[in-house]
C-alpha cells in the first residue's frame, strides 16, 4: 500500500488535478492493520448485494446459456476480437508507464491479429510468441505514485478502488477507438465486449461461484482477492517480481497458542 504520496514524475500535473486526483490520493488515511481501507463499507455492501443479485438473475444464467449454446471456438473468436479492440488502449497505458518493450509487442500483436488473424478473430500473435500483456489507467496512476485510496464496489463493474475508478473513467474516455467507430460499429464493439465478459463468467464459473455463493462473507472475500491481486499486478508493472510486497504472514510468530507447546 502506498503510504506516502510522491510527486507524479511523468504526469502533467494540471491534467491530474483536473481529474480530481488530489481528492482521492488518500495520503492522510493510513490503511488498517489488514491493509484494507474501506470507509464506504456500508454503501459498498449495498452495491455488492445488488451486483450479486444481478449475477444470480441475469449474468450467471446468460453466461450459462451463452457457454452452452455457442460453440467454444466461436466464443473464443469473439473474445479474441474483444482483446484486439482493447489493444490500442493497453498500448497507450504501457507507453505512459514507460513499458516500451511490452507496448511494442502489443502494437505488433494488433497489426498481426488484425490482418493475419482476420480482424482479431484468431490470436495468431500468441502463437508467434508475442504474449498478451495488460495495462490500464488505474495501473498507470499507481506507477506514477498515486495511492489506491479507499476500496469501492462499483455497480455492475464490481470491485475497484478510488484510484482504479478514476482510471476506468479515463480509459473509457481516452480509448483511441472512440474516434474510429460510431453508430452501429460502436454498438457492435460494446456487444463484443459484453459477450467476452459473459464468456469469462462462463469459463471461470467455478471460481466465481465459489466466491459469490460459497463464501460466508462474499463481500469481504471479493474485496480481499481484488486488492491482493491488484497490488500484485501493480508491483509487477512497477518492475518488481511481485513476490516481496507484504505477502508474508508468519503464523509462527503471531500471538497465538503454540500448537507444539506440549
Amino acid at each position: 500500500m502506498t503510504a506516502t504520496c510522491p510527486p507524479f514524475p511523468f504526469a502533467p500535473r494540471p491534467i491530474l488535478l483536473a481529474l480530481g486526483l488530489s481528492a482521492l490520493s488518500a495520503c492522510a488515511q493510513a490503511p488498517s492493520a489488514d491493509g484494507v481501507s474501506d470507509p464506504l463499507e456500508p454503501v459498498n455492501r449495498g452495491v455488492h448485494a445488488v451486483n450479486k443479485g444481478l449475477d444470480t438473475v441475469i449474468v450467471r444464467p446468460a453466461s450459462k446459456a451463452y457457454g452452452t449454446v455457442v460453440p467454444g471456438p466461436v466464443r473464443q473468436g469473439v473474445s479474441n476480437v474483444a482483446d484486439t479492440l482493447d489493444l490500442p488502449g493497453v498500448v497507450v497505458n504501457q507507453v505512459l508507464q514507460a513499458r516500451i518493450g511490452e507496448a511494442t509487442t502489443n502494437t505488433l500483436r494488433l497489426a498481426v491479429n488484425a490482418t493475419a488473424g482476420i480482424g482479431g478473430l484468431f490470436d495468431v500473435a500468441s502463437v508467434l510468441g508475442m504474449p498478451k500483456t495488460d495495462a490500464d489507467f488505474g495501473q498507470t496512476l499507481a506507477v506514477w505514485g498515486v495511492g489506491e485510496g479507499p476500496y469501492v464496489e462499483l455497480p455492475i463493474e464490481g470491485p475497484s478502488t478510488a484510484r482504479d475508478t478514476v482510471g476506468l473513467v479515463v480509459d473509457l474516455a481516452m480509448n483511441p477507438l472512440n474516434n474510429v467507430f460510431d453508430g452501429n460499429d460502436a454498438d457492435a464493439t460494446l456487444a463484443i465486449e459484453g459477450l467476452s465478459r459473459l464468456n469469462d463468467r462462463y469459463r471461470y464459473s467455478d471460481t466465481i461461484d465459489s466466491i459469490l455463493y460459497d463464501s460466508a462473507d462474499s463481500y469481504a472475500q471479493l474485496r480481499l482477492l481484488y486488492l491482493q491481486n491488484r497490488r500484485h499486478e501493480i508491483a509487477k508493472a512497477k518492475g518488481g517480481t511481485g513476490g516481496e510486497d507484504g505477502d508474508f504472514i508468519d503464523p509462527y510468530e503471531e500471538d497465538f497458542i503454540d500448537p507444539y507447546a506440549d
Binding site: A216, A220, L224, L225, R230, H232, E233, P251, Y260
Partner: peptide, 30 residues
C-alpha cells in the same frame, strides 16, 4: 518450525491463502 519441512502458505498471483482463509473462517465465526 514445526520440526519438519512443511508448507504453511500458498500465494497465487498475489492472493494469499492464509489471508483468504482468515477472512472466511472469521466470517463463519461471526
Amino acid at each position: 518450525k514445526s520440526g519438519k519441512n512443511l508448507f504453511f502458505n500458498i500465494i497465487i498471483e498475489g492472493v494469499n491463502m492464509l489471508a483468504s482463509e482468515r477472512t472466511e473462517i472469521g466470517a463463519m465465526l461471526d
